[in-house]
Amino acid sequence: MKTLIVEIIEPKRLGELVTASRKFCDQPDIVAVGSGQLQGSYGQSYQTELVVGSNLVLPLVNLIKDNGYEVVLLSATTFGTSLAGPLAVGLSAPVISEVTGITDDRIIETPMYGGKALARYKANCKPLILTIRRKYFESDMLDGTAATVPLGIGPEAVNLVGEQEEKAEGIPLEDAEVIVTGGRGVGSPDNFSLLREMAHLFAKGAVGASRGAVDEGWAPPSLQIGQTGKIVAPAVYFAVGVSGASQHLAGIVNSKCVVAINKDEEANIFNRARFGIVCDYKKAVPEIIRALKEEA
């Protein structure tokens, strides 16, 4: 099936979409968004430096219609979300968002009810638009670089005034092997320093936050983990003072081992945990830090 990827130039995001595209074709075409070299090998490669999705809807509708694309793949990110609904209307096409699985016979799986249920769909017409949830498809290695041709763009309805990158301490959450996440149970922004100290004792450790902690203003939105934050897949995920709402669990479903530290033994997080520690985290975390330092 003739497949088009539309994605920001970022190797892991691109790689995951390339892997997903293998369910539909051998080599997808691409609209690469942003500046810089495009990694990987594609059929036809287009590029635009415009990163505001709403300015790309019309050119993409025209491109998809003119070239007869049958599948359009986006990531389930701010960028992909900005395009999925508008493209579906512009193309009168079915769209499935937050895709977590595609079977060999092209049945599409997507969660509902904050991950408490899983729905399976079959599309009956083309083109089909999919947004792929991060970390559910292993990233393709993307060998080499591709030459691109510019994508023609019309007038811009939305102006990009500026971009502020939040510099996270240490490594990005998506690449972390160990994540120490604080929830509302952590109690204050100052207490996150304890979690930071623990995370940084692991070789590839990072600190995350639940939606509750972000809503309290204890951590920036860029650290939010969950269905509407970052989707992560570390080897070990420490959930400290995190209750375990289904929306949070949806963001850690691919974590290999969850360690839950919570005073409430009835907390839902223990249903997802491999190891549980029922106590005040202020007693447990300093001891884990001490043990890590002794081993270092």
Binding site: V52, V158, N159, V161, G162, E163, S222
Partner: peptide, 8 residues
């Protein structure tokens, strides 16, 4: 966005 804040 996934990397910070965009002003539009």
């Amino acid at each position: 966005t996934e990397t910070g804040v965009r002003k539009l």
